[in-house]
Design a protein around this nucleic acid. Structure first.
Lengths: 279, 279
DNA sequence: GGGTATTTGTCCGTATGTATT
DNA sequence: AAATACATACGGACAAATACC
């Protein structure tokens, strides 16, 4: 026979109540002592059941207040596919246009600029020789005031030495770094590759995103390596998004605009238009 | 002052040992009773520390054996961007070529075909009127014998009625369904959109993927909506990947082949250009 | 600001069950 | 069958966070 352990039975009963709507999002569960009586179990067993629900993101408990059914966050969609010659997945007006298009308000910190050695695995995609330096530009992004993503772009230091001086200034490059690199050092970005992984947040990320410190919410990491027309990597942008409030989108070929489904406008045309407006 | 609680200090010490390599992947930790003595804590407190590590995926414990440092699975990379007119993210030879290119062995079940009503939110992307029917083709995929992804494609039933009869047969369409739809009913796929979300696995998924039932490992869900040259959605493919053994790749514009890089991260990103040419 | 009641968080000891070797 | 190691469950005590008066 071997029925499920008691803490699982309690957890399953509570989960059923949540999924069937008997317990609405945001609503407070009965206290541990009340549940202890209801299920004729010890408080520790009730706590085991609640822990099981917490791990699955169904409830959260707040010391001194109680345990509450989790409220879901309305996700924000980031489109990974853009115009290969302009998309910088980062600074500039394109990003903020995508945010406002979803009726949300973006804000971000000024870039934090550092110069590092390139020998760490962190910048392996840039294929730089050992001992070379990289410029790192780091930004924190918010949407509607809540922390939404962390982003760091790495550029070979050689770009600065050949004229892209604004890369080492701690201010936004409004026209986008892709456009700036073309103007200043004549480097044309012709494509990029994104590698998407899902992993547990590190300490910095958990703190910034205010993630529950039980590692339940994972983060999505995208590593964008951009190439010039000679196939040389010119930029690596690492973005980290908490998985509980983000979605990614990829568009390939001609895709109708979801807003106006009958419209024949192609995705590629839309991207070009955006890029021009921003440049 | 208020130092961290003891179970966190113990967990942090163990985590440090793991991250610094003092405890190698696969290696057994000291038993709970030994740790109890080492840290002068009760066994329950040691267990709280271990639970904290388990939730974060650092260790796993096996009844009767012990607690072990978690061994990471070598990830498989799926490329989302392909030729807009052929990529089916699914059946046919393209997928299996991408797998073998990474020196892995693919296998999958025959498609399980069902006919359903289209009114569920499951198929909202197909924009079908209420009461319309859809064909659902479901497959389980394995790589090197371990469960790797679950995939379901939905097609409007009208495609079958106008001649795409093989859609309702429980056998693979080797040339790919995109090619088959072109031959049989003259529908040309010109593009697609992928929506990528990360979420907790449901029960079916947790069982199939043999995920730890603590909800720690999340799954990546991609919903691919494909359109014909009139902007009408012709297919919806929902794929579910366990996040602990999968990466996604997106390529835009011209991207050089990832040369035999010295780094494992890029080494797995096998080229799919060849696959497309052959498809 | 202080004090008190409520609620969850941490920690202990103990007993018994279950899985593995 | 016996030993080992983790899993579940109980009860108790005190600490810490929060809300309310």
């Amino acid at each position: 026979m071997a029925a499920d352990p008691m803490y699982r039975q309690i957890a399953d009963d509570l989960r059923r109540q949540i999924e069937e709507g008997e317990l609405a999002p945001g609503q407070q569960l009965r206290t541990e002592l009340e549940l202890r009586e209801k299920y004729s179990a010890s408080r520790n067993t009730v706590r085991d059941a609640i822990k099981w629900l917490i791990t699955r993101g169904l409830v959260e408990s707040r010391p001194g207040q109680g345990t509450f059914v989790f409220e879901k966050i309305s996700p924000f969609v980031t489109t990974l596919t853009g115009n290969p010659r302009t998309s910088s997945s980062g600074e500039g007006t394109i990003y903020s246009q995508e945010v406002t298009a979803q009726l949300r308000t973006p804000s971000d910190t000024l870039p934090q600029v550092e110069i590092k050695q390139a020998n760490s695995p962190e910048t392996a995609e840039l294929q730089l020789p050992g001992g070379a330096s990289v410029v790192s530009r780091h930004q924190k992004r918010f949407i509607d005031g809540t922390p939404w993503s962390l982003q760091t772009s790495f550029y070979p230091m050689s770009l600065v030495q050949t004229g892209a001086l604004r890369l080492i200034q701690a201010e936004n490059i409004d026209e986008g770094t892709v456009e700036y690199l073309k103007e200043s050092v004549g480097i044309k970005q012709v494509g990029y590759r994104d590698m998407i992984t899902v992993r547990a947040p590190d300490n910095t990320e958990a703190t910034f995103f205010k993630l529950p410190d039980d590692g339940r919410v994972s983060v999505i990491e995208t590593r964008r390596t951009a190439y010039d027309d000679k196939g040389v990597p010119v930029r690596l942008t690492v973005s980290v998004y908490p998985a509980d409030r983000n979605q990614l989108a990829v568009k390939v070929g001609e895709v109708p605009d979801p807003a106006e489904a009958d419209d024949a406008m192609t995705a590629a045309a839309a991207d070009d238009a955006d890029a021009e407006r921003s440049g």
